[in-house]
Simulated assay, not measured.
Amino acid sequence: MPRPFTPKVVTANDLLEGDVIYFTADNTWTRELSQAELITDEAEAQLRLLEAEKQNISIVGAYLADAKGGENGPEPTHFREEFRRTGPSNYSHGKQEARSDV
């Protein structure tokens, strides 16, 4: 028996900069998970992924990542997505350089 569907966000990497990005409800990309579209329907999730993949001139590696609703928007449910959201951990640069809590 298949597992029940869990909410998702569409995520990918920016083709030029390599940053983790998230698909929004208005078909744009953001670097903030909290601004991503949280998709709660399985069929809609597949359609949104196809829509995101059409933008292959600016993104690479789009996929659906498990997420949950939070106070400020979607939040990751798996440590991999939390790691991707905060950026590289070998030294402070990119997203970590701009954050004081990392």
Rank of each mutant, 00 (worst) to 15 (best):
P2T: 13
R3F: 07
R3L: 13
P4E: 11
P4K: 08
F5M: 04
F5N: 07
T6C: 07
T6G: 07
T6Y: 07
T6M: 11
P7G: 08
P7F: 07
K8D: 00
V9H: 00
V10S: 01
T11V: 11
T11Q: 12
N13F: 14
D14Y: 06
L15D: 10
L16A: 15
E17W: 10
D19L: 12
D19E: 15
V20C: 04
Y22I: 02
Y22P: 02
F23T: 00
F23I: 01
T24K: 05
D26A: 08
N27M: 04
N27G: 00
N27Q: 12
T28E: 11
W29Y: 08
W29P: 00
T30F: 01
E32H: 10
L33F: 02
S34D: 03
S34P: 00
S34K: 05
Q35R: 15
A36P: 01
E37K: 03
E37S: 04
E37F: 05
I39Y: 01
I39T: 02
I39M: 02
I39C: 02
D41M: 04
D41P: 03
E42G: 03
A43L: 15
A43Y: 10
A45V: 03
A45I: 02
Q46G: 06
Q46M: 11
L50F: 05
L50N: 11
A52L: 03
E53C: 09
N56G: 12
I57H: 11
S58E: 10
I59H: 00
V60E: 14
G61K: 07
A62Q: 01
A62T: 01
A65C: 04
D66N: 11
D66G: 10
D66P: 08
K68T: 08
K68R: 14
G69Q: 14
G69A: 15
G69T: 01
E71Q: 08
P74S: 10
P76N: 03
T77C: 07
T77H: 05
H78M: 12
H78W: 06
F79M: 08
F79C: 03
F79R: 09
F79V: 14
E81H: 11
E82T: 05
F83K: 13
R84E: 09
T86K: 10
T86D: 11
G87P: 08
G87H: 06
P88V: 09
P88Y: 05
N90W: 14
S92P: 03
H93N: 06
H93S: 10
Q96S: 15
E97D: 08
E97R: 14
D101F: 14
